[in-house]
Design a protein around this nucleic acid. Structure first.
Lengths: 153, 153
DNA sequence: CCAAATTAGTCAGAGACTCTGACCATCGTC
DNA sequence: GACGATGGTCAGAGTCTCTGACTAATTTGG
């Protein structure tokens, strides 16, 4: 089972499904927009790694932990991203074992498009829900993060 | 990029990430509980198909459409589930081309455990947010479904 | 200071997931 | 009854992910 599962008799579908549906819808929109703009040479799995790369570069182990995959898998995906020109690997000046995965121009250009789509979709959602309910939604989700995000700041 | 992506400067992380985090947390809890109860002989991909099976049985094409995978992939996953004893395939009395994928005892037993975990997690969330905010969250998500779920009833 | 434990990353191999393309059988329509 | 649409399978390839074993560098404890 996944989080989409659960009883649907009493109060409608379970909250997991309700969370998942808009998430997937947003993701689909982002992918479509990027593909249309010519950024069609990466996969969803690669994207999940890509989006974790900080402007200053991020270690492979850190990427793996945040994406909840093994470092071997992360390394495999970063290899693809490197070949496609989205990232570079640079030595970490503070630790000679480590290398920093750094975003290339191509990555930041793609991210700009992705950000625009996110903003557009969020506007649509706010319009559909109304300003007040949209604010309440974000407030509740932000609170929920405290008990569901192991990486919560 | 995925829906987790986006600008984080202005109003905190984007709504996609906020939706995804609790979803993944719930999914992880369900998987852990099922594994502990001995239901460790299926994969996440198989689960995404399993959960779409209605009590009356569901056609392969229908499962594929809802899970957003090809019917070939759905067939592959149902094969595994059949071998593991979670489902049976029965002829569809209304269409000789089709076969209904029906849940076996093992599936409903697992679903009972999954449902219990969902209920437990939802209780925790309601406690953390307070009854009022939790209700607002579900209300907003339910409304959002109208414009993000192609299968919305 | 140095041995031991830890951490960053790689290599090799295998299993699992997903897709495209091609195909057959049945259904619905005209 | 012919034809397009639908339900499903088979074959093949590419991608994702894991476990296990390994090297190199760092950190820790005496």
């Amino acid at each position: 089972m996944t989080a989409e599962d659960g009883p649907e008799a009493d109060g409608g579908p379970n909250t997991g499904l309700l969370l998942f549906l808009p998430y997937r819808a947003l993701e689909d929109r982002i992918f479509a927009a990027l593909a249309e703009a010519g950024y069609d040479d990466f996969t969803p799995a690669q994207a999940r790694v890509m989006q974790r790369i900080s402007p200053d570069g991020t270690r492979l182990t850190e990427l793996a932990a945040q994406a909840q995959i093994t470092k071997q898998t992360a390394g495999f995906l970063v290899d693809q991203l490197e070949k496609a020109g989205y990232v570079r690997r640079e030595p970490d000046p503070t630790d000679r074992r480590a290398r920093l995965v750094c975003g290339a121009e191509k990555l930041w250009a793609a991210k700009e498009i992705a950000d625009a789509v996110v903003a557009e979709v969020e506007r649509e959602w706010e319009e559909h829900l109304g300003r007040r309910r949209y604010r309440q939604l974000r407030e509740a989700l932000t609170l929920l993060r405290e008990i569901t995000d192991p990486w919560a700041s």
